[in-house]
Design a protein around this nucleic acid. Structure first.
Lengths: 244, 244
DNA sequence: GTCTATAATTGGATAGAC
DNA sequence: GTCTATCCAATTATAGAC
């Protein structure tokens, strides 16, 4: 099982988006280097941020495949192309690293559901939601997998957020769905079960990607296959499979 | 890279499943206890088998929650109520234990799909399938979770079976679905995507059980909730959610 | 078959020089 | 901020008595 080695050799890059701007005036050590140009300081801060997110990205990739315990700090460091001790300078310990990875995840997970509102046409809103979720399954499969891993293990670290943020959000969106039903725009269906079904079907392509690949011969990366997935999931949910 | 070693060890020990009954005449130590009744011997064999399966059961419960690396042999032994070294007498090493747990799983996983045949009424066949899968999610959530864990990790140990058994089975059942469509009994839908959807929606209640519980307040154990789950999944898949 | 004791290894975390 | 060199705890696995 040459897993470990080949993995260590894998690529590093990951998207980094958040930029922080200047607080040069206040920071102590910065004064000493006041001669340095502002851009130089910013560049340094940027480098640090980049390193942080490189580590986070590498960690996501490995945690999402092998779990917290299946991944060693060494492997993360190697993949992020930093030394182990350097990694431990940025993140005090393994768990803190893991939690930070998870935190970033939750936002991504919650986001697409917010779009729902009662004014929209339900078929369009739900069809669009399916597509957006499948885009995430295609572009961020590791995020999806890690989320799934965490759920399977009982979400020890996400439980609070589940009970708070996600729950209230789902409650709100369930109201929207009920409104659609009351308006006769949607068949009577339990909102919770509908939401579960949507999540399940779309995440499946990421979480069970190996199986999908093994059985269909395709990945969501394959543009035509992706479109077929979107269409089929939409059709199943919206029209059902019994001929009309 | 310790993988090689443990793997080799596992490979050696691989197949030993068939039980040999009585060869008391020949075996040395047996002669001494020739006075023992046959039932006594059988009882002893039964006890051993029970112990094996107690260990396997405990292992499934723990592996399915914490993964291979998140579970220690100690924990499995404690849960199965045997000593650690006794466990290692039955299973040469951790990986062999894990593989044995997985092997038992696959049968359970493959089983329900076999029922499909072109003569059946599709709505009834698929509706029944949904119910059967949800029963499994309710009664064997740990099996479902472990399967999911294994998939997420790329199914290193199931890959071969995926490519062989499962693939051919799915191909055969896809033909059945296509036959239904050609006969006008089913709306045109890609068989693969339909199967994925069915798997995803039903497994979700086991794999994401914590989330389901957190958001709906219920478990499949709850009889009423179980029935609602069955009905809703069936309705979504069969009729869709757009009013007719 | 079952146990105790222990060897052997991994991997998380710290100390301290630079 | 980054490195090398350790320390130390946890776990897997083995040896050998009973």
């Amino acid at each position: 099982m040459p897993k470990t080695k080949s993995l260590a050799a894998a690529a590093v890059k990951q998207s980094k988006q958040q930029e922080h701007a200047e607080e040069k005036e206040t920071s102590g050590p910065a004064r000493k280097r006041a001669v340095r140009s502002a851009s130089s300081v910013n560049r340094r801060m940027r480098q640090i941020e980049d390193k942080r997110s490189a580590i986070l990205g590498a960690a996501l990739g490995l945690f999402s495949r092998f779990g917290l315990h299946g991944t060693s700090i060494d492997q993360v460091a190697a993949r992020a192309d930093v030394s182990k001790s350097n990694l431990l300078y940025y993140f005090a310990n393994k768990e803190e690293l893991y939690v930070n990875v998870l935190r970033d995840l939750l936002a991504l997970w919650l986001e697409p559901l917010r779009g729902f509102s009662a004014e929209q046409d339900p078929a369009e809103a739900i069809g669009g939601y399916i597509r957006r979720k499948l885009v995430i399954s295609r572009d961020r499969p590791d995020a999806s997998r890690l989320f799934c891993l965490e759920m399977i293990q009982g979400a020890p670290l996400l439980r609070d957020e589940l009970d708070r943020e996600l729950r209230t959000l789902v409650e709100k969106k369930s109201e929207v769905i009920r409104a659609w039903i009351d308006a006769g725009k949607l068949a009577p269906v339990d909102p919770h079960h509908l939401i579960f079904a949507l999540w399940a079907m779309t995440q499946h392509y990421a979480d069970f990607g190996v199986q999908v690949q093994a059985l269909s011969g395709h990945t969501l990366e394959d543009e035509a296959f992706f479109e077929r997935a979107v269409e089929n999931v939409q059709r199943i949910v919206l029209q059902g499979i019994v001929p009309r």
